[in-house]
Simulated assay, not measured.
Amino acid sequence: MKVIDQYAYRSPLRHFDPVQKVLFSLLVLITCLIEHSLLLYITVILLMGWLTVRKGLTPIKLYIMLMLVPLTFLILSLLTLLFDFSTESNSFLWSIHITHMYMGISKGSIQICLFMFFKVFASVSCLYFLCLSTPMNDILRVFEKWHCPTFLLEIMSLIYRFIFVFIDTATTMYTAQIARLGYRNFHLGIRSFGMLLSTLLIRTLKMNNVLYTSLECRGYNGSFNVLHEGSYKSLPYLYLILVEALLIGLGIIEFILGG
Rank of each mutant, 00 (worst) to 15 (best):
L71W: 11
L62G: 14
L51I: 02
I105V: 03
T87R: 13
L38W: 03
K107S: 07
L68F: 04
L66W: 14
F117A: 10
F83I: 15
N90R: 07
E35V: 07
L74H: 05
H100V: 04
S89Y: 15
A122F: 03
L93Y: 09
L40V: 00
L46F: 05
M116A: 12
V69H: 12
L81W: 05
L38M: 08
D84N: 03
H36T: 11
T43F: 04
S37P: 12
V44C: 02
S125E: 08
I96H: 05
P59H: 06
K61H: 05
Y41C: 01
V124N: 08
L51S: 04
F83T: 13
W94L: 06
G104E: 15
L51G: 09
V120I: 07
P59K: 05
C32A: 13
L81S: 00
I75P: 14
C32K: 10
M67H: 08
C113M: 08
G56D: 06
I42V: 03
I75R: 12
G104P: 13
F92N: 10
V53S: 08
I96T: 11
F115E: 01
I75F: 15
F117V: 13
L114K: 00
I34F: 11
G56C: 07
S95T: 09
L76Y: 09
N90C: 12
P59Q: 02
L57R: 04
L39T: 08
M116W: 15
P70S: 08
G56M: 06
L62M: 12
M116L: 13
I30E: 00
G49V: 01
L78D: 05
T99L: 09
E88Q: 12
T52N: 09
K107G: 09
K107P: 09
K119C: 06
V44L: 02
